[in-house]
């Protein structure tokens, strides 16, 4: 039998939902376990080999303490291919929605007071590419099953996972949904990386952009349209902020001033 590639699945700050999404692939679980030699998977195993060198490292979660930074760097050294797995490690996700606004310390104090931290010093949530070189990205909050399995298969065969360059609208139309944006809902579908199979719009829930922003996203046009449809600037910004972080908020604020 061919030697199975080794894999480590690591979690930092986040809801661990991406790891759960992997475990949720019930029909394929046996295939995953027989195709890959899993060395680390705290979410699912008790017998973890932290020192193992791995072919593939799936890293979930954002980096929130100096200790995590250190651990992440160690994983990088042990892994041949390091993959940012899910939105938290891709771009910070919800916990990074106010990244870089300069008020983090104040907020932190409000919650934790003057508590002293000794083991790990907390810091603002950051995506993992701020600290280490990332070889591949699997976006999603959480990643969708078909895309996740496809990416895993491609990684197993030594390929780069296919980067989806079509917006959510493509699969939304495959499922024959009415356009929510056309119907006057605050839907971010056209700006968001597709591959999720459009579960939200299929249930009449507008897209909130959890997979991150697509190349060539036309923010100006979408903002103009949303304003025409009667949405207030703060509502639009709030929607963008959830997954876009501060960079995008700044951009949107500037755009809203000019249009």
């Amino acid at each position: 039998m061919k030697k199975r590639p080794t894999i480590g699945i690591y979690g930092f700050t986040g809801c661990a939902g991406c790891q759960l999404a992997l475990l949720d692939c019930e029909d394929e679980l046996l295939d995953i376990f027989s195709a890959l030699d899993i060395k680390v998977f705290y979410e699912a195993m008790s017998n973890n080999d932290d020192n193992a060198l791995v072919d593939i490292a799936l890293v979930e979660g954002s980096i929130n303490t100096n200790k995590q930074t250190q651990e992440l760097k160690e994983i990088r050294e042990k892994a041949k291919v390091l993959v940012a797995f899910g939105s938290c490690s891709n771009h910070g996700c919800v916990q990074a929605m106010a990244l870089g606004d300069g008020e983090w310390e104040q907020r932190f104090k409000q919650v934790y007071g003057d508590m002293k931290f000794t083991v790990a010093i907390p810091r603002e949530a950051q995506p993992i590419h701020k600290f280490v070189k990332v070889d591949a990205y699997i976006p999603g909050c959480p990643p969708a099953k078909p895309q996740m399995l496809r990416a895993l298969t491609q990684l197993m065969h030594g390929n780069q996972p296919t980067y989806t360059n079509s917006p959510v609208c493509l699969e939304c139309m495959f499922r024959e949904n009415e356009c929510l944006l056309y119907n006057g809902k605050l839907c971010l579908g056209p700006l968001t990386i597709g591959g999720c199979t459009a579960p939200c719009p299929s249930h009449n829930i507008p897209c909130i952009g959890c997979w991150g922003i697509i190349d060539e996203a036309n923010h100006i046009s979408e903002l103009k349209l949303l304003k025409e449809k009667g949405f207030k600037a703060e509502d639009i910004i709030r929607r963008f902020r959830i997954f876009g972080g501060s960079d995008i908020v700044e951009k949107i604020q500037k755009l809203l001033e000019v249009i």
């Binding site: 917006p167 609208c169 493509l170 139309m173 056209p190 700006l191 060539e216 036309n218 046009s221 979408e222």
Partner: peptide, 13 residues
């Protein structure tokens, strides 16, 4: 071109 969202819905429909 400035207005187009490149959502591709026109081509699907």
């Amino acid at each position: 071109g400035d207005k187009c969202l490149s959502c591709g819905q026109c081509t699907m429909a």
